[in-house]
Design a protein around this nucleic acid. Structure first.
Length: 576
DNA sequence: GCCGTTTTCGGCCCGACTGTTTTCAGTCG
């Protein structure tokens, strides 16, 4: 069983939690968390780095000690430090820190006084009214704990696409107030993450109190968690939590940086500020050598400028090397939706009655959106629920495409298929029909639970087929529904490079597969991707924008993306 | 535990709000 970066990151996170509960040195705790973050976002497996004799201590936030611990984990799958800590502290106590309002100090206090170790213990003591008897606790905290336990069972991050309409109406409402000059959604929403935990809204106004009052009076607000002169937190009927922050004109840029995050990016910026005897907070940039004189803050650009940096777009603000790149002038020129010339994954009513639009309707929708080409990729027979195309069906569709291509002069339809990768790694249609297609999109839809070894071998075998072009939704995950398949994607991506195959960035909001970190890894090894709508209806062609967002977060530039190429260019790539 | 144009020790990002207290610790983002 190979040890992945994520496994090591999880061990470091757990160690950090347990050290936190012990009341250890907070900087030591932070060191473990920083290292976990570095590992989780690393674009290549540390196991490879070790094999190739590279020094792990060269990685950011990893020194000699943690480098050694990583090699121990790679060898044994665990770490003596973790096992010692787990003997000392019940690991279930770490879960208690997920309840809002409970941090390490309060959890430890509850453990020492009431013997609380698990969520069940906590619930029982809260319901019995015992929490309020503990020094430093009261009725409010007890009630918040009870509420928090209930919400912990429900809370899931929202797909950003699902939050969009909520955002639009709330922003409209806030903009309608006379004292509000400007409103913007910041946070992970602005960084265009695939999901959002809550909404962070920034308003420009000189009367924070009035704007906060207006905010909490919004008709969808069901609970006001906090309310001050400049900020407030509420819960909407939909369950979404919204934080509002109100700042004056001169602080707007600094506040936008601060509220957009990520937290790690902000920390890195503030460290950089300290090195320049500056202080960055949500009100501006201040010169600590000159009586805290404000030197910037009105715009985001002004904040970055005082730190000797060009503007960094929100999608890159994850402290994944963007600050160094900005300093060196090597920030990527990110892919945009306008750069896409076509869509390489499209379904029609030919394969599935539930698909809403015909070949012709899909073609016209693509043309209306200015696309140069559209690949038709209905399902193959194995996807019986989708009434996959038989060999004869596919041949008939190819004829229909030829006819339509004669008729359309500003859109080129490509003949393709989303062919199933069978459990044994063969493709679901014979080679002689696949040979006649322009290219093949290949996908796993069944037997998602194979072992990592078998699943990887299955896909590698499929890639041996010369007709294999693009691996669709490579991990098979559905956000909030099912995780990725067990899969050695590093091997698959390397094999794809060797064999002239490609990966898809599936733009369906619940898939977004591959994700941003994997996009970055693909770029690093020179593997191009297709940003594909996986369109099941005309409107689905507009989903491409979510795929573009994910690709931007993965640092992809136009040259990293197949469908920025013209069809003749693509045809040459696919033929080689 | 990491890190270094203040470099092998002594720092490590910053402020608002709540709930408990009477001046502030804990938590959160």
């Amino acid at each position: 069983m190979p040890i992945h970066n994520a496994d090591i990151a999880r061990i470091f996170e757990e160690i950090a939690d347990l050290l936190d509960l012990k009341g250890e040195n907070r900087f030591r705790i932070r060191a473990y968390r920083n290292a976990a973050r570095t590992l989780a976002q690393l674009s290549r497996p540390v196991s490879d780095m070790v094999e190739e004799g590279e020094n792990l201590a060269d990685l950011p936030d990893i020194g000699d000690d943690l480098a050694e611990k990583i090699t121990v984990i790679l060898d044994t799958g665990t770490l003596p430090l973790l096992e010692d800590l787990e003997d000392e502290i019940n690991p279930a106590m770490a879960d208690l820190m997920d309840i809002p309002g409970l941090g390490p100090k309060r959890v430890r206090m509850l453990h020492e006084t009431l013997g609380v170790s698990t969520l069940d213990d906590l619930k029982a003591e809260a319901e019995a009214g015992k929490i309020r008897t503990v020094e430093g606790f009261g009725e409010k905290i007890e009630q918040n704990i009870l509420d928090g336990i209930v919400e912990a069972g429900e809370a899931k991050r929202w797909l950003r696409s699902r939050a969009e309409p909520v955002v639009t109406s709330l922003v409209d409402y806030l903009s309608g107030h006379d004292d509000v000059e400007r409103v913007e959604v910041a946070g992970s929403y602005r960084r265009r993450r695939e999901t959002v935990g809550d909404l962070d809204i920034l308003a420009m106004s000189n009367d924070g109190g009035a704007v906060v009052e207006h905010f909490v009076a919004y008709e969808d607000v069901v609970d006001v968690a906090s309310k001050g002169d400049t900020q407030s937190t509420v819960r909407l009927r939909s369950g979404l939590q919204v934080d509002l922050r109100v700042v004056p004109h001169e602080s707007y840029g600094a506040a936008l940086v601060y509220f957009t995050g990520s937290k790690a990016h902000n920390v890195a910026l503030r460290k950089r500020a300290v090195e320049r005897t500056l202080k960055v907070n949500e009100y501006g940039v201040f010169d600590t050598n000159n009586e805290q004189k404000r030197i910037a803050g009105e715009t985001e650009e002004s904040v970055y400028e005082t730190l000797d940096l060009p503007y960094i777009v929100p999608e890159l603000r994850e402290d994944r090397g963007e600050i160094i790149a900005a300093e060196k002038g090597t920030l990527p020129r990110l892919i945009t939706g306008e750069a896409l010339r076509g869509n390489l994954h499209t379904h029609t009513t030919d394969s599935d009655g539930r698909h809403r639009h015909s070949l012709r309707e899909m073609a016209e929708a693509a043309r209306d959106r200015g696309m140069e080409y559209l690949a038709i990729t209905d399902h193959s027979p194995a996807v019986a629920v989708a009434q996959g195309l038989s060999e004869d069906d596919l041949r008939r569709q190819m004829d229909a495409i030829d006819a339509l291509n004669d008729e359309l002069d500003d859109l080129h339809l490509l003949k393709s298929i989303e062919v199933d990768i069978m459990k044994d790694g063969t493709l679901d249609l014979p080679d002689d029909v696949l040979d006649d297609l322009d290219f093949c999109v290949c996908a796993v839809h069944t037997s998602l639970n194979l072992s990592e070894e078998k699943q990887t071998a299955r896909i590698l075998r499929a890639m041996d087929n010369p007709n294999f072009t693009i691996l669709a939704h490579p991990t098979g995950r559905r956000i909030n529904e099912r995780g990725p398949m067990a899969l050695n994607l590093d091997r698959i991506m390397e094999a794809a490079v060797e064999r002239g195959c490609y990966l898809e960035v599936n733009a369906q909001p619940e898939r977004l597969d591959i994700d941003d970190v994997l996009c970055r890894r693909a770029k690093d090894i020179g593997l191009m991707v297709a940003i594909s709508a996986d369109a099941h209806s005309r409107d689905d062609l507009d989903l491409l924008t979510y795929g573009v967002d994910q690709a931007r977060r993965g640092w992809l530039e136009p040259d990293d993306v197949l469908n920025t190429k013209t069809w003749p260019e693509l045809a040459r790539l696919f033929a080689s």
